[in-house]
Design a binder for these strands. Structure first.
Lengths: 130, 130
DNA sequence: ATCTTTGCAAAACCTTTGCACTGCG
DNA sequence: CGCAGTGCAAAGGTTTTGCAAAGAT
């Protein structure tokens, strides 16, 4: 049902060539190297469709517009540079590393609440901005 | 320089009476019980000003528009209900509870990166939606 | 030939800003 | 009275949508 178009191919190629989460405008700019007349609406539609297919994942950080990255089955979190605002993948989950068990999180939830998931974001300076 | 107006008083009162983070529209609706003709622009300006004065804090969750709550000096994180989308304060930091040290987070940052801070958000179901 | 996808422009949200008016100090 | 604060409406930024034209199968 998903037709193969130059636009979709260009957008997928951008994700294949980039390991860092990108926002829609960045996707547009990179993909326009392959399809110059590409429009932003097509980018948004492709992001939604690629997301539905599980090929890309949404990276939502507090106070930031959504970014997107190639789907990565590993459980991982993100690091945002406070200088350049770029976002980078982390290799693992701090909870895992510290032997955090679900009970450790559960113990914080108010009585009667059910814990299902957690999100962790680290902040600091990336190598280039250090 | 901050003048005492009915509008500001109404907005502050909303925060004094609510423990849960509120978004600007919720603040408007609640404050309009005291000042019916209150406008949304005034809410945004008051939120900024109250934030600058340290009386309220911004609560940014991934993929959500900003919410605001009365400033709380305790280090704490938030819980979002996946059913009603409301946000609740947690009493402590999971990192503290689990004896997570800064080194545990630092060990995850890529070489050359500097870690400055972290954010943790828990997700699940609140008591009413359980 | 059919039916999805695209590009453009308009619309929908959320937030900010310009400006004349209100009202605090 | 002087100026900060307010309300409205317009403007900005991001994302979504309507629609006619282009293009994939």
């Amino acid at each position: 049902m998903e037709r193969q178009t130059r636009q979709r191919a260009a957008i997928q190629r951008v994700f294949d060539e980039t390991s860092r989460p990108l926002d829609p405008h960045e996707v547009l700019l990179h993909a326009q190297r392959f399809v110059p007349q590409l429009g932003i609406a097509t980018v948004y539609r492709a992001l939604k469709s690629l997301g539905d297919e599980g090929l890309i994942a949404t990276v939502n950080l507090p106070g930031e517009n959504p970014r997107y990255e190639r789907a990565n089955l590993h459980h991982h979190h993100h690091f945002q540079c406070r200088s350049c605002q770029r976002v980078f993948d982390l290799d693992g989950c701090p909870g895992d590393v510290a032997k955090l068990s679900p009970r450790d999180f559960q113990s914080l939830t108010p009585p009667g609440f059910t814990l299902e998931d957690h999100e962790i974001i680290l902040y600091g300076r990336c190598e280039q901005c250090a």
